[in-house]
């Protein structure tokens, strides 16, 4: 059995977002790049499953669509413990384009994991699109994943609760918080070994994008906070009622 984790290369979550060229382009000056937090958790869980499988899960791979500048992120995934990696050497375009590229790699796997969204363009779409292109079942908002023999048991978050869902293989799991407690941190040995692990660079296949960013905007600046004295809590409540009309 083989697991593929799709990863994306995103700005660190504390990044101050800026745009340039008339707000048409995301300004990457000074940006630290990381593995998308959900993808990192998915990878961590995939490795835990492999280690606990008694050899049944032979391999955990990672795949990324992006140019050469995303290689440190892939190396990090290998250092965390992925066995090998694929990079489709092209600009990510849009979700449809990325899913089309990933499909070529994913079709040889039994389980494909994607993060519920990427913290940059936040589309929440690649995993779902990929599953449809593969004509595989998908389960989204996965917060727990267990595999025993050929049985896949998934906990899915729903409004106000959770469901336990079983799925046939192959399938795409779209994961969120809970799938693993903490992302695994690469150890020195892992970093050394990562250099020797295969990183396959693939040429993109012909595909189209269906969407395009025209430009970006920052939210309008917020008015300064109105402070109320701590001895006068009632004034705050009155403001909330009469001025903000919020209660």
């Amino acid at each position: 059995m083989k697991i593929l984790v799709c990863i994306s290369n995103v700005p660190d979550t504390t990044t101050k977002i800026k745009f340039k060229e008339d707000n048409k382009v995301f300004d990457t000056t000074g940006v630290q790049w990381i593995i998308n937090p959900w993808d990192e958790l998915a990878l961590t869980r995939a490795l835990e499953l492999k280690e606990g499988s008694g050899g049944k899960i032979e391999k955990v791979s990672v795949a990324l669509v992006g140019d050469k500048s995303s290689e440190p992120t892939i190396r990090k995934a290998l250092a965390i413990g992925a066995d090998d990696a694929f990079r489709v050497d092209t600009d990510p375009g849009d979700s449809f384009y990325v899913a089309t590229q990933l499909k070529e790699i994913a079709k040889d796997y039994d389980i494909v994991l994607c993060g519920i969204e990427s913290s940059d363009y936040t589309s929440s779409a690649v995993g779902g699109m990929l599953s449809e292109m593969l004509e595989w079942p998908s389960v989204s908002s996965v917060s727990r994943l267990n595999i025993e023999g050929d049985d896949v048991s998934i906990r899915r978050e729903i409004d106000g609760g959770q469901e336990i869902v079983s799925s046939q293989m192959p399938f795409v799991g779209i994961v969120q918080k809970g799938i693993a407690l903490e992302p695994r941190i690469p150890a020195m040995r892992g970093i050394m070994m990562a250099r020797k692990k295969p990183l396959n660079v693939l040429e993109p296949i012909e595909a189209e994008t269906l969407t395009e960013y025209e430009n970006f905007e920052m939210p309008p600046p917020k008015a300064a906070v109105k402070l109320v004295d701590e001895e006068n809590v009632k004034e705050l409540v009155e403001l909330l009622k009469n001025e903000a009309k919020a209660i």
Binding site: D94, S95, F96, A99, I116, E117, T122, S123, S124, A125, V126, G127, G128, M129, S131, E132, M133, S138, S140, S141, E157, I158, D159, I174, L210, T211
Partner: peptide, 24 residues
């Protein structure tokens, strides 16, 4: 909706119809 269900189903529908998706 841009909720659990919407995020689960909309991307699949978009592939079926070859429709570009804008989320959120």
């Amino acid at each position: 909706a841009n909720n659990f269900t919407g995020k689960a189903v909309a991307p699949r529908v978009s592939v079926k119809l070859k429709a570009g998706l804008a989320g959120g």
